[in-house]
């Protein structure tokens, strides 16, 4: 590794997609979550634990805020004062938004969290030194740090329990950062299979674990640059553009009738997750 090599590869090293010289090709993985459908049941979160070897930290560590749920379901009440929540609550599944201009990436001193060509915010466990700067700079606070060494912790995966671990996913040791990966192991398997067959991954061929479990099918996932994908169609129908910090439709006086929005979009992380607003019946 020479410095000249470094310089040559520099533009490659820090790249955000899509830009003119490097469009997402052939994949840009993205999601949309309909919070009108989401019931808040938490099945997606459990699925993520099962798929991604997430440790159950136990009561005491949870009390200290050290829980590891990559997917958390937030329950919101209305902002104003009320006696009873007569319009119910709102549930919001929140996980890494796989930002296109991810604030977590630029600050990592060792480049352990990067942007992949297929539009993921990747996390390289072996590279991470545990500075936690990425978490400090993530506006959504969806990065989870291994405060303890869970693989060797007898309360987490004692004998037998450890046989449930998914061999496709690393078990993370102490001192490294982790977060939702969009189930990258499933994506890679699908991409490789498709490549072997000389095609790209078809719509519906790959599902994230959370999407797969979700009883209300609130989560859609797919390739945003594939015009056939549901996610593409949804983003388009909702007029949500990836590379902007304010959508054109939201500038309409009186607001738009479209439900698609991205959280903290104004900070310009360009999240890859679009939410669809909850709907409230006006007749009751």
């Amino acid at each position: 590794m020479s410095v000249s090599n470094l310089l040559e590869n520099w533009s490659q090293f820090r790249h955000f997609h899509p830009v003119d010289d490097k469009p997402h090709d052939p994949y840009k993985w993205a999601m949309s979550i309909d919070i009108d459908a989401c019931s808040g049941c938490n099945a997606c979160s459990v699925a993520c634990y099962a798929e991604n070897n997430i440790p159950v930290v136990g009561k005491e560590r949870f009390q200290h805020g050290q829980q590891m749920h990559w997917m958390r379901i937030e329950r919101y009440w209305p902002d104003h004062d009320f006696d009873f929540p007569e319009q119910g609550a709102e549930f919001l599944p929140m996980m890494c938004q796989q930002c296109e201009a991810a604030p977590c990436e630029t600050v990592c001193p060792v480049g352990a969290t990067n942007h992949t060509a297929d539009g993921l915010n990747s996390q390289i466990y072996n590279r991470c030194i545990g500075s936690r700067y990425c978490s400090a700079n993530c506006p959504f606070k969806v990065r989870y740090f291994n405060w303890y060494d869970y693989p060797t912790d007898e309360t987490v995966w004692p004998a037998e329990m450890n046989r449930q671990l998914n061999p496709d996913v690393s078990v993370r040791g102490k001192g490294v950062m982790e977060k939702c990966t969009f189930c990258v192991q499933r994506l890679r398997a699908a991409e490789v299979t498709a490549k072997g067959e000389g095609r790209i991954v078809r719509e519906g061929e790959v599902q994230t674990a959370c999407q797969q479990a979700c009883p209300t099918s609130a989560i859609s996932f797919g390739n945003l640059v594939d015009p056939e994908s549901r996610v593409h169609k949804q983003w388009q129908a909702q007029q949500v553009e990836m590379n902007v910090d304010e959508q054109e439709k939201d500038k309409e006086p009186g607001g738009s009738h479209l439900r698609g929005y991205r959280i903290l979009e104004e900070l310009r992380p360009y999240p890859s997750v679009m939410y669809l607003e909850r709907v409230r019946e006006s007749a009751i």
Binding site: R14, T106, C128, I129, N146
Partner: peptide, 24 residues
């Protein structure tokens, strides 16, 4: 978190071809 890997933050040529992130 991983004190024993602190030197990953130093720019030194290595056969893994990895460099620290000069943007950080």
């Amino acid at each position: 978190g991983r004190l024993w890997q602190f030197y990953y933050a130093l720019p030194y040529p290595n056969d893994r071809g990895t460099w620290p992130n000069f943007q950080s």
